[in-house]
Design a protein around this nucleic acid. Structure first.
Lengths: 231, 231
DNA sequence: ATATAAGGTGTATTTCTTACACTATTGCTA
DNA sequence: TAGCAATAGTGTAAGAAATACACCTTATAT
């Protein structure tokens, strides 16, 4: 099958776009770079992929080293390869994204590599200047989650385990950047039959406490295997 | 911004998954390889990306050199990076896909590189053994076009410029691998308002000739900019 | 006790989806 | 040239889903 061909290895990076939701805002996880190029700039967690690790493994390792986050399931988004995107030469990057319950991990963001000084959530609509083409990558990610969320209720991953319907609605309003009707939203959500109503209520609010709900993953998997609705 | 960092270049390949539709079947364009590795095997058009070309440009060049096809708009599908996918080492590949009017290009498939001996359409449900992980790439592509076609009527690209509603229905049936109701299908399609009815009929058939339609791209762009339908 | 702030609920209208079967037209051939 | 073969083309009724819309309830703070 092969003659004496040279041995080759792909050199490339992988970047992580991690979305969280808090205080009615979508946020993205950025790191402060401690190494050239773009030393002292903010950017996405991202680094070179090793020769002996899959891309899926690499993004997990990189996210852990850069932010301390572990066990996050990321999906591949797109591969960026503009000629000028990286100052060291044409280096392509494979971007992955994930959405997660922000409040669960808010406190303990701890980089474990010298390449990174600091990891922090930033509101999506108030980002600092970013290294490389990272702003572009984030913009493509937000388009992707908009499309994704419109075909399946994956948005639950951005909420705490127990949440109120109002929180859920605010999340959709943040992703869509538009207001939704409260009654219709609730009707629709409850009809999907993937919410489990709990016997608990919100605490610590100075007004009528709302019922708490959980996302029922078993039912979700049954219903949304086929997420299709055109003809 | 940078100190004295080494100059680097990504080494990687790009592959093309080109779908066509003919005689009621979905087909994919394969090439017969004339070089190691996988000499004499069938595989996707694909090759190394040059250091000074974008990935988007590279797939166009590669498709042209391998098959003679020109001016095809391809979209990025996914980047494959399994450790064992390429016998020369861990070389990742960025896969692109396109759908196109098969009958317009059927005759003149002419490779212009010695790496390729031959280019040919193969029915999707009767593929030969394929080089590398190309079967896997094709499977991921077909899932993608199923999802895509269910959110926007992009399937028109697989039909000749003028087509009958029955041809359109057969195309959807091939993509979905299931039968659809004729009356409901027509009602739905016409309601989208992206078909232009022509003053022409099918020719050369030995039964009642069907009306021909065209895809109205202007209307399409207006309607499907936001292809979203959840809340 | 009252104000404040959000929680929680129903109905009528319109639109979309689905299931379902017969007549019309054309070319071919006996 | 009659009739057969093959596909084109059409409508309706029932159920499901989407939308628009406003008021009372409950908990807390003062």
């Amino acid at each position: 099958m092969q003659s004496n061909l040279p041995h080759l290895q792909s050199i490339f990076t992988a970047d992580c776009v991690i979305f969280g939701f808090n205080e009615g805002e979508l946020k993205v996880l950025l790191i402060e770079r401690n190494e050239y190029p773009f030393k002292d700039w903010w950017g996405l967690p991202g680094f070179f992929v090793e020769h002996n690790e899959t891309i899926d493994d690499a993004v997990k390792r990189i996210l852990l080293e850069h932010t301390g986050l572990k066990g996050i399931y990321m999906e591949q988004l797109y591969t960026f390869g503009d000629l000028k995107r990286h100052p060291q030469g044409r280096i392509i990057t494979v971007a992955y994204y994930a959405m997660l319950r922000l409040e669960a991990v808010n406190a303990n963001l701890k980089p474990s590599t010298n390449y990174v000084r600091n990891a922090q959530w930033h509101p999506l609509n108030n980002l600092p200047d970013l290294a490389f083409d990272h702003r572009n990558i984030i913009e493509k990610s937000i388009e992707k989650i908009r499309r994704k969320v419109s075909h399946s209720p994956i948005a639950f991953e951005l909420l705490p385990e127990k949440f109120t319907l109002t929180q859920l609605q605010q999340l959709y309003e943040a992703i869509w950047d538009k207001k939704l009707d409260k009654r219709n939203f609730r009707k629709k959500m409850l009809k999907y039959n993937v919410l489990k109503e709990l016997d608990e209520k919100q605490k610590g609010v100075s007004y009528r406490a709302a019922k708490l709900y959980k996302f029922d993953k078993r039912k979700y998997n049954k219903i949304f295997k086929n997420e299709l609705n055109f003809s």
